[in-house]
């Protein structure tokens, strides 16, 4: 549906070189890349803020890179949401309806539908500066979706939110896509977002798309050293969820902050896992005994893998390794907070 052909753009110090992408209708496509690789510029090129130096963007048979932004019918949500500060939430959402000259009755119907769907009725008379990050995001998404865009572009939509809100809005984005089926292009630097939401993921590095595929495919079979490193979200574990507990193997339960039922995948970042000799009595809700099966020296840190029923990798400082005298084969405890468990 959306096709990007040999797109090239130089802007200031960085450039996008030879971008080729194909996004199918109804897909949730994630572009994954480190900060400063030109992800936002790519979205702005698609939406028409900039003209490409070379190459083109197509919607079906229409070359939209020749059109003005107002002719492209693309919904855009910036990382900081870019709500119009002088308009109320209601006026922000109605903005596109008026600009597109949508019939009054139809406009009100769509407005009501999206407001009900996103549960933002209570925000309508407020100004953006009085909203929380999550509320601003829902407003920005409502404003973009109310005009029924052909594609929704999301620029790092979850990165400005705290971890708990982030989990909630990740679910919200999934719900929006499942229900409205709007083709979505979402950019992020966080692989766990790609795992949780993406039907396809493209990895962007140095202005180039390195690999495109299903998230699990990219994770299992990275085609380059960079991709392998970048998506190296260790500790990806399958399990069965019952409320806030996920059983990952016989008698090993992991506590989370998200309620869920059924088969689930969870990730825990290595730096969130603490290793100790004795069981820790702390605020960490997850404490599991295990045995060190691998230790890799990595700069000032050790990457310690513990078999705790499932393999869990933790990052431990050299000082801590020396103080505890950790060796391969030693019995240890791993501890991590329930908030550190990311449920996909």
């Amino acid at each position: 549906m959306l096709r990007i052909d040999n797109l090239y753009k130089k802007l200031g110090s960085f450039e996008l070189t030879n971008i080729n992408l194909n996004i199918e209708k109804d897909e949730y496509f994630i572009i994954l890349g480190p900060t400063g690789t030109g992800k936002t510029v790519l979205l702005e090129l698609i939406a028409g803020m900039y003209q490409p130096d070379k190459g083109s963007v197509w919607f079906g048979d229409t070359k939209i890179s020749d059109l003005y932004p107002e002719q492209r019918n693309i919904g855009f949500v910036y990382q900081d949401y870019a709500l119009f500060p002088h308009l109320t939430v209601k006026e922000n959402i109605f903005f596109g309806i008026k600009c597109r000259g949508i019939d009054v009755n139809e406009g009100h119907r769509r407005f009501k539908e999206i407001v009900d769907f996103l549960n933002i009725e209570y925000l309508l008379d407020r100004f953006p500066s009085t909203l929380s990050g999550g509320e601003q995001q829902r407003t920005a998404i409502a404003r973009a979706l109310v005009t029924s865009p052909r594609i929704l572009l999301l620029d790092e939509p979850l990165s400005a939110l705290d971890p708990r809100t982030k989990q909630i809005f990740q679910e919200e984005l999934r719900r929006i896509h499942d229900n409205l089926k709007t083709t979505t292009l979402h950019i992020t630097h966080d692989f766990s977002e790609a795992m949780a939401l993406g039907s396809q993921v493209g990895v962007l590095h140095n202005g180039e798309i390195m690999q495109v595929g299903k998230p699990m495919e990219v994770f299992r079979h990275p085609n380059s050293h960079f991709v392998a490193n970048f998506v190296g979200a260790e500790n990806i574990i399958e399990g069965n969820a019952r409320g806030k507990t996920i059983e990952v193997c016989n008698n090993i339960n992991i506590e989370t902050i998200m309620e869920k039922t059924g088969p689930s995948t969870l990730t825990i970042r290595p730096e969130d896992i603490i290793i100790s000799r004795e069981k820790l009595f702390s605020s960490a809700q997850n404490n599991i005994p295990g045995k060190i099966i691998n230790m890799i020296h990595q700069g000032p840190l050790y990457r310690v893998t513990v078999d705790a029923g499932v393999a869990l990798t933790a990052l431990v400082t050299m000082q801590a390794v020396e103080e505890m005298g950790l060796e391969k084969g030693d019995p240890v405890w791993v501890a991590f907070k329930s908030a550190a468990v990311h449920v996909l």
Partner: peptide, 17 residues
């Protein structure tokens, strides 16, 4: 922020509007 105008244009406004 020039992005304000840009967002308005993605919503269907001309530059003048």
């Amino acid at each position: 922020d020039p992005r304000m105008e840009f967002v308005a244009r993605t919503l269907g406004c001309s530059r003048l509007q």
